[in-house]
C-alpha cells in the first residue's frame, strides 16, 4: 500500500519533467505559431504582435511555462489554436476511441502470443517452431502502414469482408454514453451496433496488434525455454510430477514475470503505434489528433496530448508493477 502511494506520488515529478521537455521543444523549434495562424489573412506586424501578446507568447519562456502549469493543475490545458476549443475537451472526446483500439490490440496480441509462444517452446526445433519463428520475424519486420494499407486493399476492397476505415457506419449509431462504442452498444443492447463496431475494429486492431503479437511470441518462447532448462524444473520432473503440472505451476509462473514486463512496455508502444494506425484507418482517436496538432503548429494541443500520453504510460507501468506482486508473491515492495 505504502509502495503504491509512493508510486502515485512519483507521477508528479515525471509529468513535470515531461511537460518541461515538451514545452521547451515546442517553443524552440523554428516556426512562429502566430505566423501560421494568420497566414494568408494579411495581418500586419502590429496585429501579429497583438496576437502574440494575447496568447502570452511575448513573455519570457519560464514565465510562460509557469502560467501553463498553474492553469493545467486546475484542469485548464489552454485553448487549441487550430480548433479554437479547450484542449481537454478535444482530448477527452477522442480518448475512448484510442483506448478501445489499443486495448483491443493488446488483448488480441496477448491472446495470440501466449499460446503460440508456448507451443513453439514445447515443440522446439520442430517444423511448427520454425514456422512460428519465421512468421514472428516477418511480423516484426513489416512496417505498420504497409500492413494496414495491404489489409485495406485486400480485405476491405477486393474481398469486401470488412470495412476499411472509421469506427462505425453512419447508418447504425448507438447512443453514446461512455464514448466506448463496444460498451455503449452493450449497455443499450444494440446488437447491430456491436457487430458493426467489432467489424470496424478488426483491421486496425490486427494492424496495430501484429507487431506486438510477434514480438511477444518470441519473448514468451525464449523465456519459457530458459526456465525449462533450470534445475528446479528438472527436480520437479524427477519428483514424478505430471508434465502439465510442471508447466503450469513451475515453468509458466516463473516465465511470466519477464513477459509481463515486456507486455507492459509494449502496451506503451501500442499507444505510439496508434498514431500511424489511426491515420491509416481514419480512426477518430488521439493519435490522429496529435498529427493534426503537429502539422498546425498547435503547440498548446501538442503539449496537452503528450502529457496525456505520458500519464497513460505511467499508469500502465504502475499497473504492471502491481500485477507482478500478484503473480509472484516473492516480489514484495513493502
Amino acid at each position: 500500500m505504502q509502495y503504491l502511494l509512493r508510486r502515485l506520488v512519483l507521477i508528479i515529478p515525471v509529468l513535470f519533467g515531461v511537460s518541461v521537455i515538451v514545452f521547451t521543444i515546442m517553443h524552440v523549434i523554428p516556426g512562429d505559431p502566430v505566423q501560421l495562424m494568420l497566414e494568408g489573412t494579411g495581418a500586419s506586424a502590429e496585429q501579429k504582435q497583438a496576437m502574440r501578446h494575447a496568447l502570452g507568447l511575448d513573455l519570457p519562456l519560464p514565465v510562460q511555462y509557469v502560467n501553463y502549469v498553474s492553469k493545467a493543475i486546475r484542469g485548464d490545458f489552454g485553448q487549441s489554436i487550430h480548433f479554437k476549443q479547450p484542449v481537454l475537451g478535444l482530448i477527452l472526446e477522442r480518448l475512448p476511441a484510442t483506448i478501445e483500439l489499443t486495448l483491443a490490440s493488446f488483448i488480441l496480441s496477448t491472446a495470440i502470443a501466449l499460446p503460440i509462444g508456448l507451443l513453439s517452446a514445447l515443440k522446439r526445433n520442430t517444423f511448427i517452431d520454425y514456422i512460428v519463428m519465421t512468421g514472428a520475424t516477418l511480423g516484426i519486420s513489416l512496417p505498420t502502414f504497409w500492413i494496414g494499407i495491404l489489409l485495406i486493399m485486400l480485405v476491405a476492397v477486393n474481398l469486401g469482408w470488412l470495412p476499411g476505415f472509421g469506427r462505425i457506419d453512419y447508418a447504425v449509431h448507438p447512443q453514446r454514453i461512455t464514448g466506448f462504442l463496444l460498451i455503449d452498444s452493450l449497455l443499450t443492447w444494440n446488437i447491430p451496433a456491436l457487430k458493426n463496431t467489432l467489424a470496424h475494429l478488426a483491421l486496425p486492431v490486427l494492424t496495430l496488434g501484429i507487431g506486438t503479437a510477434t514480438f511477444t511470441t518470441r519473448f514468451v518462447r525464449s523465456s519459457l525455454l530458459e526456465v525449462m532448462g533450470q534445475d528446479f524444473v528438472v527436480v520437479a520432473r524427477a519428483k514424478g510430477l505430471h508434465e502439465r503440472l510442471v508447466l503450469a505451476r513451475h515453468v509458466l509462473r516463473n516465465a511470466l514475470i519477464p513477459v509481463l514486463t515486456l507486455i507492459g512496455l509494449r502496451m506503451g508502444g501500442l499507444l505510439g503505434g496508434a498514431v500511424v494506425t489511426e491515420t491509416i484507418f481514419a480512426w477518430p482517436g488521439m493519435g490522429r489528433l496529435v498529427i493534426q496538432a503537429i502539422y498546425g503548429r498547435d503547440f498548446v494541443l501538442v503539449q496537452g496530448v503528450v502529457l496525456f500520453f505520458a500519464l497513460i504510460r505511467i499508469t500502465i507501468n504502475i499497473l504492471t508493477d502491481i500485477i507482478y506482486v500478484w503473480v509472484d508473491p516473492r516480489i514484495s515492495h513493502i
Partner: peptide, 20 residues
C-alpha cells in the same frame, strides 16, 4: 450529405473503390 474525413490518400481511394 456526410463528410467523412480520411487522412491517408490510399485509404481514401480504397474507401471509394469499396463503395463506402
Amino acid at each position: 450529405v456526410i463528410f467523412a474525413p480520411i487522412p491517408e490518400a490510399a485509404t481514401r481511394i480504397a474507401a471509394l473503390e469499396a463503395g463506402d
